[in-house]
Design a binder for these strands. Structure first.
Lengths: 256, 256
DNA sequence: GCTTGACCTTGACGCAACGTCAAGTTCTAC
DNA sequence: GTAGAACTTGACGTTGCGTCAAGGTCAAGC
């Protein structure tokens, strides 16, 4: 049972170029090469490939991936040293990022001359509720001031966390859109759910009794995204916004 | 008043190669080129260079740095849009890292078959208090068990933060050592102070009444680092450990 | 038997921001 | 005059593939 390079690539969710690369660096040698020069992979290769991709998602470099796999093969199972080392790495990076964020915030406030970052930048990078006026028009008056108070009532750490969550969501949407992901597929729907859950945290949005956005609000918001520069700018233009909108509409249809 | 490429590089704390690169990409054009082909920079270039380096430390890409500077020049001062965009970026990265760290931790616990990460890995990446036995021998019995209880009493978030701090410190030591930094210089001494402050957070270490490590403990610890593989492995070998030790000794001499 | 189109190959450039030789020229000091 | 330091341009290396480019292979249809 063996597969061509494209077949195994699709099975594992990667590309043929990546497979050739892994072969070139010796991380995943090709199982068999036909007389025509074609590469073929068997099920052992598939398992190894899946492990490689998993470790890569954890942020390990290719040499590090190789170490982990070699250790596992040598010690039957276990040998987490390389992973633990990587964990230390990740934590150091996180700490560095934290410091950088603080520095950038300081720089911004210095350049703007005083005052900490307030509500006007609450939705930086994910400014969909800038549509506040339109939203209010369609779903009735909701005091944005209450949202503002909610924001100011948060601690700096909470604000940062909230913004980080929003930024990550925005980045993931943009990434998925650029990769041409299917709006009805699992990945996009997971994103739509994240968007939905995230919205639940914002007061001043139309919500059901259990604190979640209403179906109408959710789909309506999605529709408004399309064609609105303030939103689409962060999501790969109108194409990206349309993708987001589609995914949200499908989610609402199925789940709400 | 103009300087040669090496002179201005030293003034700003960078390298001549970097200056040539900035010239090549148009970020910092050279002020004047002599008939011999030599590059010369004036004070305006120095100011701009310093701004560039500052923004680079905040993590901006060269094009982003160019945008910020252009906006500042156009608008007199201000124009923080690019920086704010960068901030969103940083937060998204941080969030991504957080998720990765959680995944790696899960993977490790899965591979080791159960149980969350406990005290045995408390000092991962910065395991100087593994010298516990020797330390106790020299500074009297201090129950390591109390340190263990302290660790287990922390919340996961606190543990992660503490480990991140330790990992960052370790990484910075290793980096400074690899760059051949002077142990008596400001950079190394700042690191030594961080190390000192960090130690203050660990119960079970000899401390003065105000909760700080004693001078003897601090210098003694530094001495033990040299030649101990468990420590030096993380710091660029014995050379790195010696550098750390020297910096710590000088710090203790001057400040404690 | 031929064309078409999908799939495959190797080879090579591109990216980010410089570090690091290499080979040759110029300056400075003795 | 000459050693040695400083300078120049040019080019490769780094990481993990993406992305052409140019061409060979295969299955299907006419």
């Amino acid at each position: 049972m063996d597969w061509s390079i494209q077949e195994i690539a699709k099975l594992a969710g990667t590309t043929s170029r990546t497979l050739r690369h892994y072969d070139a660096v010796g991380l995943l040698p090709v199982t068999r090469v036909g007389v025509n020069g074609y590469r073929y992979y068997d099920e052992h290769a598939l398992v190894r490939l899946q492990r490689i991709l998993l470790l890569r998602e954890l942020g390990l470099s290719l040499p590090a991936v190789g170490e982990v796999l070699a250790a596992q093969e040598a010690a039957g199972h276990g040998a987490t040293d390389a992973l633990r080392e990587h964990l230390v790495w990740l934590r150091a990076e996180q700490y560095r990022l934290e410091a950088q964020i603080a520095s950038v915030e300081d720089t911004i406030t210095n350049m703007e001359g005083g005052g900490p970052l307030m509500a006007e930048h609450m939705f930086d990078g994910f400014d969909h509720t800038q549509h506040q006026a339109e939203v209010e028009e369609r779903w009735g008056e909701h005091a944005f001031a209450s949202g503002d108070r909610w924001w100011r009532g948060k601690t700096p750490a909470e604000r940062a966390d909230w913004q980080a969550r929003a930024a990550a969501l925005a980045a993931d949407w943009a990434d998925a859109a650029s990769r041409g992901v299917d709006a009805s597929g699992e990945e996009a729907q997971v994103l739509a759910r994240r968007q939905y859950d995230w919205l639940s945290g914002i007061p001043g949005t139309p919500q059901t009794a259990d604190g979640h956005p209403t179906r109408e609000y959710f789909t309506g918001l999605g529709e408004m995204y399309v064609g609105d520069r303030r939103f689409s700018a962060n999501y790969g233009g109108e194409t990206g916004a349309r993708f987001v909108s589609d995914a949200m509409a499908l989610f609402a249809e199925r789940e709400l």
